[in-house]
Design a binder for these strands. Structure first.
Length: 240
DNA sequence: GCGACAG
DNA sequence: ATCTTGTCGC
């Protein structure tokens, strides 16, 4: 009955979770875990696009204010110059508490609300959180990538799961693998000299190597890549 | 049982 | 995520 707003700007939503995802995940933590286990097998870690992406969307959400309202923001940048093309926000009350490992059930409804306001479909989405570097290999970047059927990269500021493979060189662009239970689940990536690394992992329809490459291509002198950095500012109302 | 724990 | 100054190193 209702048209999926995401379809208007080129997204394809997986039907069986569409109504849940666009509103609130009215589920218990136990069900959420089962949903993750079920959806994890659908994630692709292979490059699903033709060479250099043009439009990169960064998404982030503000902490809830005193009334419990949070703001999700999406900033669309054009590579290679990182020119800002669109800034969209969507606010509401998160319908799920923050639980480590279940972040997407809290944040994805608001983020999707912001994404559906884009007029241009992104070639890749950069997400503030984990992708495969997650206990069930299904972090929020996988979740958003799968629901929008768009390549997605997890770019977290700290580790949820796994440990770095080795010592990390202090130069910009250096990276080491992030390993969990003997499996490479992501990478610690130095986005600028002598700052703490960010933790990159596959969200959907992209390889780890490409995820690292395009993340670095999105960096402009800050630790946090421009798409998510600007999305954080936009969600806080400090961009435009 | 204990520790670890994206935002 | 938030609360928080100055200080040290690149």
């Amino acid at each position: 009955m209702n048209l999926c707003p995401l379809e208007r700007c080129g997204f394809a939503i997986i039907g069986f979770v569409k109504s849940l995802a666009l509103h609130s995940w009215d589920v218990e933590a136990r069900e959420a875990v089962e949903i993750q286990r079920d959806l994890a097998s659908r994630v692709s870690a292979e490059d699903g696009f033709e060479a250099p992406p043009r439009y990169v969307a960064g998404v982030d959400i503000s902490p809830p204010d005193a009334d419990g309202n949070a703001v999700a923001a999406v900033v669309l940048l054009e590579l290679p110059d990182l020119r800002t093309v669109e800034v969209k926000v969507y606010s509401g009350k998160p319908g799920f508490p923050y639980v480590p490992g279940l972040l997407s059930f809290r944040e994805s409804p608001l983020v999707l609300g912001a994404l559906e306001r884009l007029e241009t479909a992104p070639d890749v989405i950069l997400v503030d959180g984990q992708g495969l570097a997650h206990p069930r290999r299904f972090g929020i970047a996988c979740h958003l990538g799968l629901l929008t059927d768009t390549p997605a990269i997890g770019c977290a500021k700290s580790i949820l799961r796994g440990r770095p493979d080795d010592d990390l060189d202090s130069d910009a662009g250096a990276y080491v693998h992030l390993v969990d239970k003997g499996e490479v689940v992501g990478a610690a990536v130095r986005t600028r000299k002598s700052v703490r690394p960010v933790y990159i992992s596959v969200g959907h329809k992209i390889s780890l190597g490409s995820a690292i490459e395009w993340t670095l291509a999105c960096c402009k002198g800050y630790r946090i890549p421009e798409p998510t950095r600007l999305a954080t500012l936009a969600a806080a109302g400090r961009l435009s």
